[in-house]
Design a protein around this nucleic acid. Sequence first.
RNA 1: GUCCCCAUCGUCUAGCCUGGUUUAGGACAUCGCCCUUUCACGGCGACGGCGCCAGUUCAAAUCUGGCUGGGGACGCCA
Length: 430
Amino acid sequence: MLRVRFAPSPTGYLHIGGARTCLFNWLYARKMGGKFILRIEDTDLARSKKEYLDEILNSVKWLGMDWDELYYQSQRFDIYKEYAQKLIDSGKACQKDGAVFFKYDFTSVKFNDLIRGEVIFNELPKEEEVIVKSDGSPTYNFCCVIDDALLEINCVIRGEDHISNTPKQLLMYQALGLSIPDFAHVPLILSPDGGRLSKRHGATAISEYRALGYLPEALANYLMLLSWSPGDNREIISLNEARGIFDIKNVNKTGAAFNLDKLKWINAGYIKTKSPKDLEDLAYEYLTGKNFLPAGTSKEYVGKVAFLLRERVATLGDILDSGRFCFYDDYAYAEDTAPILAKNMAKEINALGEKLTAMSDFGVAAIEKEFRAVCEAAGIKAKELVHPVRVALCGRRNGPGLFETMEVLGKDAVIKRLERLTQYWGSVTK
RNA sequence: GUCCCCAUCGUCUAGCCUGGUUUAGGACAUCGCCCUUUCACGGCGACGGCGCCAGUUCAAAUCUGGCUGGGGACGCCA
C-alpha cells in the first residue's frame, strides 16, 4: 500500500509552495488508495511555534485535505538517539564537540526520480554531517530518514529544493540497512516574474489568501494546475475529480510562475457558480470576520448583496470595496462622476422619487417599469436617467444592474439617496 | 566557486516517452467586435511560442551532444 507524507516545519506559515506539495501528496495517496501522513518536523525547538502549527493544520483542512496519521518529531527524540547510537556503535558516526557526526561513505550516488528519471551525484559538498546537535536535538536529514523508514513511507514527494538532500539521505539509509522509498521531486513555484517566490511579490501564506477572500476550492484548483494538468484542456477541476485521475508521474519538471490573474479568474468562476444560499453563508462569514458589517445587518441582506455582485467580484474581499455602498451611505461622489453630475436632472429625479414612493411592490420588474415610464413622460432616454441615478445610489459611475441594485437597497434607502443627489445639485447651483 | 535540476505563446499548459496525423491545441492576460443602462458576465475574433548551434533521419517541438539562459542546494535551519 502506498504511504506518502507531507512534512511541514512549524517555523512559519504554510505557504503556497508547501500547500501544493501537500496537495500532490494527498491527491496521489487518495488516487492510489494509500495513506496520507502528516509529520510535523518540529525538531528545532527554538523556532517551532504553536501558532504556526495551528495555522498549518487549519490551512491543510481548509483547502479540503485530511490526513490518516499525524506524527510530531519532537515526540520521537528517543528513537533518533537510538539510531544515532547504532551508527556510533558500527563506527559509521562519531562524537565530536558534543555532537554526533555521520561520516559519508561516498563514491557516487544515484537514484531514480519518479518525475525526473535518473539523477546522479558525483560529488558531495562535505564528508560528514551533523545528525545530533551538541544540545542533543537531532537534525533534519537524519530524522527524515529514520521517520520515513519507520513510518514505512514508500514514496517521498517533496520540493525540488530537497533534491540535493537526497544523496545524503540515501547514504544514511544504506548505513542503517533501511529500505529506500521512491522519490518524486516536484518543481518549485516561482514568483510572477520567474524568480524566487517571496513576500515581496504579494501574499505567500495560505491564510493570507483566505483573509483576502479566496475560496478554498479555487485556491486548491489553481495550485494543482501548477506543474500538473488533467491533460484534456480543462482548467476547472475539483479536488474530488482530481483525486480520481492524479498521477505523480504526470507532474512536470518545470518550475511554474505564480500568476495572480489566473487565480482570480478561477476564484471568480467559483463565486459565480455558488448557489445563493452558499454565497450568503460565505459572504456573511467573511464580512463578519472582517468586522465590516454595520450593527444589525441581516444575514439575508448580505446574501442579497453578494448575489447582486457575484459577477463582478473576483474575491469575497472585493465586496469590501465594490459593495461598500450597500452597507454605508457616507460615500462622496467619485471624481470621475463629474461629467454625469454636470447636468442637473433634479426635476426628473424628483419625478422618479415620487413614483417610487408610491410603489407597494418594490421588485425589480416593477421598478424598471416605473423607471421607464418616468423617462418616457420626461421625453428622455432611459440611459440619461440611469447614469445619474447610479451615481446617487452607488456614489460611482459603475455598478451592478441599476434596477437590481434598487431592489436590494430597498425603497427607503433609494429615496433617501435620490434626495441627497437633488440636494447636492441644489447646493452646487446656489 | 562546487554540485544538481530545468528549458513549447508574456504566464499556466497539451503535444515530447512510442519522430511524420501540427499551417504546434487550450487557458489567463492584452486588444477588437457583439450583447448592453455603466462596469462586469457571456459570445466571437485577433495578437503571440517550440532559446541557440550542431548531429541522427527521407522526416525533429519530439532522439543525441554542446552552448546559452533560468532555478535549486552547499547551516549544530528544515
